[in-house]
Design a protein around this nucleic acid. Structure first.
Lengths: 199, 199
DNA sequence: CCTACCGATCGGTAGG
DNA sequence: CCTACCGATCGGTAGG
């Protein structure tokens, strides 16, 4: 596996923008070529298939998430602090790589079956990192006795969806969103003596 | 506008299942026809266009959400209790109409521009219902002084994403998910004197 | 990287 | 609801 040429990078980022705007199936290889001032068939001097382009984008996004977030799960800090850092790092990837993240979340299921399986495994390991930190927090008495799987899913559900509405040119900074989300979830998980919202 | 015939309902629910599995653009009208044991062109005896079918499914899902959830925002109860009911009702729609909800969240942007606008307006009004309840809770001193817009987005982001992983034949009942999510968010929003997670 | 092309399939229609 | 068809477009290739 050699490192991608400049032209390939251009193809991936152009395709990433188009796939994110219109979706994978509604974007033709000719749409991508046109953005790069190429003829339709000329793309195939650089790529083998349209699906390969999707795969590259999805893997680029997956690497951002995994490399930016998973190591924080085993950082030397309290579970509360680790989870806060993970939520921030995840939202940093979403907000700074919005196109790739959108394609990752929205279009990965259109990959070939082998690749869908590979992405599903990455996702499961990513979820496990969050679940483990929640388990640590419950074990350490920092968090109340939640179901770690459900709590991790709730956090991930929330931060994943952010690509649907976050706009870099909007009023909210990535940090505002991250801090607000992190506070909400950490308070929600926090062990309290007071209580008041139980049924 | 007359009420849909039985055949039309079959078309919508068949198309809803296929659109949810494969996506709108990766599903052909011939795929839909085949499921109904019809020839490809025969669908057009009942529908005017493929996009009309998508529109019907999206509107059916939107109606479920709006009718099932929005009235609860002005129910005669504390904000805490109203928000809990809204989270539960929203998740009831997601889990009980999984195909329609998936198509709604995933494919609505492939509608014609006018219809995209109409859906965006419905979504904004839906978000407003959640935001208002958060505002009420903050005003009443039930919730801490969060940004109501961000808090509403956090809750909605989380419950919207559930269609991505919830499976009716899985280990979690809709009620388990709903109660766990509602507890997490309501505790996270709750006004406390104790504190401990602030920066 | 272009020209010119391939077979397949798309959404949709005419006429019955 | 079927048969038979329409023009357009799809992903991809051969040969240069």
């Amino acid at each position: 596996m050699t490192q991608p040429t400049v032209r390939k990078q251009q193809i991936y980022s152009t395709a990433g923008a188009l796939f994110s705007q219109r979706g994978y199936h509604a974007t033709s290889v000719r749409d991508i070529a046109q953005e790069l001032n190429l003829q339709g068939g000329s793309l195939y001097a650089h790529i083998d298939s349209k699906e390969d382009v999707l795969w590259e984008i999805v893997q680029r996004a997956a690497a951002e998430f995994i490399e930016g977030v998973v190591p924080l799960a085993s950082a030397p800090a309290a579970a509360t602090e680790r989870l806060r850092l993970m939520i921030r790092a995840h939202l940093r990837v979403v907000t700074h790589h919005l196109d790739d993240a959108t394609v990752f979340f929205h279009e990965w299921r259109f990959l070939a079956p082998d690749r869908v399986r590979a992405v599903a495994e990455q996702r499961d390991r990513y979820e496990a990192a969050f679940r483990c930190v929640v388990e640590d927090g419950v074990g350490a008495g920092e968090f109340r006795a939640v179901d770690p799987k459900l709590a991790a899913l709730a956090v991930l559900s929330s931060v994943n969806w952010v690509y649907q509405w976050y706009r870099p040119d909007g009023p909210l900074s990535p940090e505002q969103v991250a801090d607000s989300f992190a506070d909400l979830f950490l308070r929600g998980l926090q062990a309290t003596d007071a209580g008041g919202s139980q049924r």
